[in-house]
Write a protein that binds this DNA or RNA. Structure first.
Length: 296
DNA sequence: TAGGCGTGGAC
DNA sequence: TGTCCAAGCCT
């Protein structure tokens, strides 16, 4: 007789059909392009902050070629304070590649998606699954946590290993394509709504009865401590302050306008240099600074 | 592969 | 307040 119970994926699918959120990029009329934009925006960013910006972007740039026709500066300004603005530049570049090389149609093939800028192991499979109904292991932080608990009986996921993590999820996926795609969404949704990092709501969990973490008595996480991400006073902080100045003006600004945002000159200059290197800022012929692509 | 890369809300 | 966290990617 079996010593453990396989995760009840049928029940999870039923729960998702009833309790999954009605997010705009999940609606039947959403295009693959809409799904791709949502996935990039959602990287390390909460759903609530993405929704309004996603609506704005899809209205303004309904196809990859439309975004590709915009300047980098326009795109960065439209990205606003969503965070990690290099994502906007990479999405812009991906849109140009899709328009040029793929007839303005977002690819459905994982390897083709992986070749595009800003699209990694997670996003490529998320687009294949959610935009095209493909069977692909979609592994994000939610899924890693759900698998760690419900399958392995651990308190949380350890350090990521793309190969091992995808194999874990692959083993859970049903054979049928669209069903597998829905299970991937359901695993993520369970992690986002129920099997959360802090304060998991096990009493509301659809797979409580087949959860290995429950059977193990809900042991605490025992792996290596996760590194703390500081922000205040870091280069990321200063880069954010510098970019905020440039987003707020239509004309190039002299360096003095940037110098006032941070008192430590060495760090300030290093950050401005790194923004230039990253292509997030450009210098005009007369030495002023601006978002890229608008003042050549 | 470990660390850099924005931002703001929740507790 | 400070800490943790949020659908990762790139080097």
């Amino acid at each position: 007789m079996p010593t453990d119970t396989a995760l009840d994926t049928d029940t999870l699918l039923t729960w998702f059909a009833e309790h999954g959120r009605d997010l705009p990029w999940r609606r039947p009329d959403c295009t693959p392009w809409g799904v791709l934009v949502s996935e990039i925006m959602l990287q390390q960013t909460p759903v609530a902050r993405v929704v309004p910006l996603w609506e704005e972007w899809l209205d303004r740039w309904p196809r990859p070629s439309a975004l590709a026709a915009a300047s980098q500066g326009e795109v960065l300004r439209a990205w606003g304070k969503l965070g990690y603005p290099r994502r906007a530049l990479r999405l812009h570049a991906a849109a140009a590649a899709i328009a040029r090389d793929h007839d303005d149609v977002v690819p459905a093939d994982v390897d083709t998606l992986l070749a595009l800028p800003g699209i990694g192991a997670y996003t490529a499979r998320a687009v294949a699954a959610f935009a095209y109904g493909r069977r692909a292991p979609v592994v994000d932080t939610n899924v890693r946590r759900v698998v760690a608990r419900a399958v392995h009986g651990a308190g949380d996921a350890g350090r990521p290993s793309t190969t091992r993590d995808m194999a874990d999820v692959e083993a859970l996926l049903p054979a049928e394509e669209s069903r597998a795609a829905r299970l991937s969404a359901a695993l993520m949704e369970l992690g986002a709504l129920v099997c959360t990092a802090r304060g998991p709501r096990c009493a509301d969990c659809p797979v409580y009865d087949s959860c290995a973490w429950q059977r193990a008595g809900r042991p605490a996480y025992e792996g290596p401590a996760k590194p703390v991400q500081r922000y205040g006073g870091t280069d990321r902080h200063v880069r954010g302050l510098l970019l905020d100045v440039l987003r707020g003006t239509s004309d190039p600004v002299p360096k003095e306008r940037l110098d006032v945002v941070w008192s430590r000159a060495g760090q300030r200059d290093r950050c401005l240099d790194s923004l230039l290197v990253d292509g997030l800022v450009e210098q005009t012929a007369d030495g002023r600074f601006a978002l890229p692509g608008e003042h050549r």
